[in-house]
Design a protein around this nucleic acid. Structure first.
Length: 320
DNA sequence: AATGCCTGCAACCGCACTACT
DNA sequence: AAGTAGTGCGGTTGCAGGCAT
């Protein structure tokens, strides 16, 4: 027995919103707020819409300070970096991009960035083609031990002016709380790297075990330290991303220029072994568990490092 | 000009989580 | 503790417009 639907789908309007509906919803929320109950909202306004639909319309389109389209290079870079690190957690990625919605970013990634990344983009010469996106991409030269990509410094976000009664995640503290809320993927308190030896070190077990291959996070090996320091569970994101990446790599005999770091590390994708069609061995996937920077009270102060030039192919897909 | 394909985006769907009773 | 309602989220779908043939 499934749960009761939130509304009678046969008796609510669906599909695109009319300007009149938009105006009603916007006007009401601006004056009265959501009242904390989206389900109860449509009848109050006289809208024959599902509450969820109203919420979505407001969040993705009507609320103030929403930006549509025109993603900047910096935003591209942040999206790519965050996707590589945390996967398709669009709400978290959106929290790093003021004015952007998770839906927008998701669409942008699925329709453009992903294709650019893997060279499938049609050679459509838009105005953005010639832009450089590498200016802030740096490789951590002092990270000799593991050559892990790390995060470029992300901009300190200014809160979006917003006065309604919904919780927002534009400040880093809220983001941090949100991340913690996401099932312990981040520890409640950042602990320095040397606390990796602490047996109480918080870590989701699913990161430790995969395919019955235990990963010793307590080891003194630098890579383990890095993993331990990551403090978050990457199993889902890594699985989806690496599966996708594996597929792409299989279909691109040529190395992905600029993404050599995905190949060059000792433990990276074993291309010969990855042709089985099955899932990758977790040990081989570990390199994709890029350490997300510890989230401290200042928010993301450290960033993923994307090798300089790593996203040239985003801009200049493999010419055919 | 007509047709079919492709792309981008808005909106929907269903599940998971949380709060409340 | 269990059930229910509301919310948030990621994945998917459907459609309109652009493009290629």
């Amino acid at each position: 027995m499934g749960r009761a639907p939130c509304c009678d789908k046969n008796n609510v309007k669906r599909g695109p919103w009319s300007p009149e509906e938009d105006a009603k919803l916007k006007s009401y929320i601006e004056q009265n707020g959501t009242g904390g109950n989206w389900i109860a909202l449509p009848p109050k306004i006289g809208l024959n819409r599902c509450g969820k639909s109203c919420r979505l319309r407001w969040l993705n389109y009507l609320r103030p300070n929403i930006k549509h389209g025109g993603f900047s290079d910096e935003e591209d870079r942040i999206i790519c970096s965050l996707y590589i690190s945390i996967g398709s957690r669009w709400s978290i990625i959106a929290a790093q991009l003021p004015g952007r919605t998770d839906n927008d970013i998701k669409n942008y990634w699925n329709t453009r960035l992903k294709k650019k990344l893997f060279g499938k983009q049609r050679q459509k010469q838009g105005s953005r083609k010639g832009k450089e996106i590498n200016s802030n991409m740096v490789i951590s030269n002092n990270n000799n031990n593991n050559q892990f990509p790390c995060w470029p410094e992300l901009p300190i976000l200014q809160p979006i002016p917003y006065s309604n009664d919904e919780p927002r995640f534009n400040d880093h503290s809220s983001i941090r709380k949100l991340l913690i809320k996401l099932g312990g993927k981040f520890s409640d308190e950042y602990q320095p790297i040397n606390e990796a030896t602490n047996p109480q070190y918080p870590m989701d077990n699913s990161l430790l075990m995969h395919h019955n291959s235990p990963i010793n996070l307590i080891s003194s090996a630098p890579i383990d330290n890095v993993l331990a320091n990551a403090q978050y569970n990457m199993d889902r994101a890594a699985s989806s991303f690496t599966a996708e990446l594996e597929h792409m790599i299989q279909n691109n005999q040529q190395k992905l220029d600029g993404l050599e770091f995905l190949y060059d590390q000792d433990m990276l994708i074993d291309k010969s072994a990855s042709t089985s069609g099955g899932s990758m061995d977790w040990d081989a996937m570990n390199p994709f568990v890029f350490p997300l920077p510890p989230i401290n009270d200042e928010g993301f102060q450290q960033g993923v490092i994307i090798q300089e030039g790593a996203f040239d192919e985003l801009r200049y897909p493999m010419a055919q």
